[in-house]
């Protein structure tokens, strides 16, 4: 956690593969994930379509080329809120917040660690079984989300070479 909290700003490329029960084949998205100090997270999808999601405070903004931007107040969606808080707390190295929302299990070594989160919030339990972060040192290498109803996703992160 300490290592993570040392990160000020990070920008990584990601590939996300989502297995959804509603679909016959997995969805593959790729783009850039940025984390800026102060809790701002941006997820820029560039393939197979362009979409930017930014999260700041409790507001989630989704912008697409073909639609008006949509803004959501996350507190109105407890499950989404817990998810975002988990992501933000992990990226920010904020163990206290993390433990407020999840049962936290940390294993491995500093060079190869696993952080497994299981939601405490009843609302979130309805949607999410677990979130697992894997990483090495201050870098997160993957985020795996297991949803209820047979959905899951794996996001693989690779630090930008530039």
């Amino acid at each position: 956690m300490k290592l993570l909290s040392a990160v000020k700003v990070s920008r990584v490329r990601f590939i996300e593969i989502r297995h959804l029960a509603a679909l016959t084949k997995p969805l593959e998205l790729s783009g850039e994930l940025s984390y800026l100090r102060g809790g701002r997270i941006e997820k820029d999808v560039s393939k197979p379509y362009r979409e930017r999601t930014s999260i700041e405070g409790d507001s989630l903004l989704i912008e697409r080329a073909d639609d008006e931007p949509r803004r959501y107040a996350l507190r109105g969606h407890p499950a989404a809120w817990a998810f975002v808080e988990g992501l933000r707390a992990t990226l920010g190295g904020d163990l206290a917040t993390l433990e407020r929302y999840y049962y936290v299990d940390f294993s491995g070594t500093a060079g190869d660690w696993t952080l497994r989160l299981e939601p405490r919030d009843q609302d979130m339990v309805r949607y999410i079984k677990s979130i697992t972060f894997r990483g090495s040192g201050p870098a997160i290498s993957s985020i795996r989300v297991l949803e209820t109803g047979g959905n899951s996703s794996v996001m693989t992160l690779q630090a930008d070479s530039s």
């Binding site: 379509y49 989630l60 969606h77």
Partner: peptide, 15 residues
């Protein structure tokens, strides 16, 4: 559009 919504961070809630 629904497909994109499913893939968005709000996907788990929308599915």
């Amino acid at each position: 559009r629904a497909l994109q919504a499913l893939a968005s961070p709000l996907g788990p809630m929308l599915s």
